[in-house]
Amino acid sequence: MWRAQLEHLEARGVAARAIDLPGHGTRIAEVFTLDSALDAIDAAVRDAADRGPVLLVGHSLGGLICTEYAGAPTPPPVAGFVATSCTAIPRGLGLRLYRTLAAGFNALPGRGRWLTERVLRATLPVETRADFGAGGYAYLAQDTALRSLSVLDLVAALRRIRVPLWFVNGQWDQLRLHERLFLRLAPHAELVVVPRATHLVTAMRPEAFNAALDLAVAVVADTADNGRGPTC
């Protein structure tokens, strides 16, 4: 799902890596746990930090977990953070409703993949249409991952984040629910709303998202004091 961003950053000479969380992509056979997801993010960040300042970018589930990670009591070696399609507190009625909808969708014939593919054909440009599901769909990890989000303390995490921070959302993203709260909790953050985009903003409007990414890369490069370029 990050192909358009990886190609864009490579063309700019910015080293970048997209990781799979447990239960997803190349790790789809693994059991998802919140601890294992945080460990995967931490391992990638610390590996990249050996080569320069790190710009962390997360989307949706990954964005929520990255928010918890970036706002840990002991700050990780992150020089900037782009939180994409994840400005919602995953608790209470909203989370229960999301899990119920996901369960109903998965109960459809073929887990509703035919409907997913139809929606992607109708909303994503042809150049990114195949990217979103190219690593497979994490059906088995879905409910476990959603349920685990309820223990995240994003309010505390956001208050602790001191590095440059951007919230990037599609105009029609359902996870804009607590957007204003997130900005109050992290008043130094910048909000970027991409017009005519849904939750899948990275694939639906890749040029616009990449422009926001370029801004974040430039800021991290300017604030770095070691003379080395950023890694995403």
Rank of each mutant, 00 (worst) to 15 (best):
A4M: 05
L6D: 08
H8I: 05
A11N: 11
R12N: 07
V14Q: 06
A15L: 09
I19L: 11
T26A: 13
E30Q: 14
E30W: 02
D35T: 14
A40C: 01
A43M: 07
A49C: 08
D50M: 07
G52L: 04
H59R: 06
S60C: 09
L61N: 11
I65Y: 01
C66G: 15
E68D: 14
A79Y: 05
G80N: 08
F81S: 05
T84Q: 10
R91H: 02
L93V: 13
L95H: 03
R96Q: 15
Y98D: 13
Y98V: 10
T100R: 15
A102S: 12
A102I: 04
A103E: 11
A103F: 03
A107T: 06
L108K: 08
P109D: 00
G112T: 02
G112W: 02
R113N: 06
L115C: 05
T116P: 00
V119M: 14
L120E: 08
A122S: 15
T123R: 14
T128L: 04
F132N: 08
G135W: 04
A141H: 03
S150L: 03
R159C: 10
R159A: 12
R159E: 14
R160F: 11
I161Y: 04
R162K: 11
R162C: 02
V163T: 14
P164L: 10
F167L: 15
F167R: 07
N169R: 12
Q171Y: 06
W172S: 13
R176L: 02
L181S: 03
L183S: 00
L191Y: 03
L191F: 02
R196I: 00
R196S: 12
A197C: 09
R205P: 01
P206C: 12
E207H: 11
A211S: 13
A216F: 03
V219D: 12
A221E: 14
D222C: 06
T223N: 13
R228Y: 04
P230H: 07
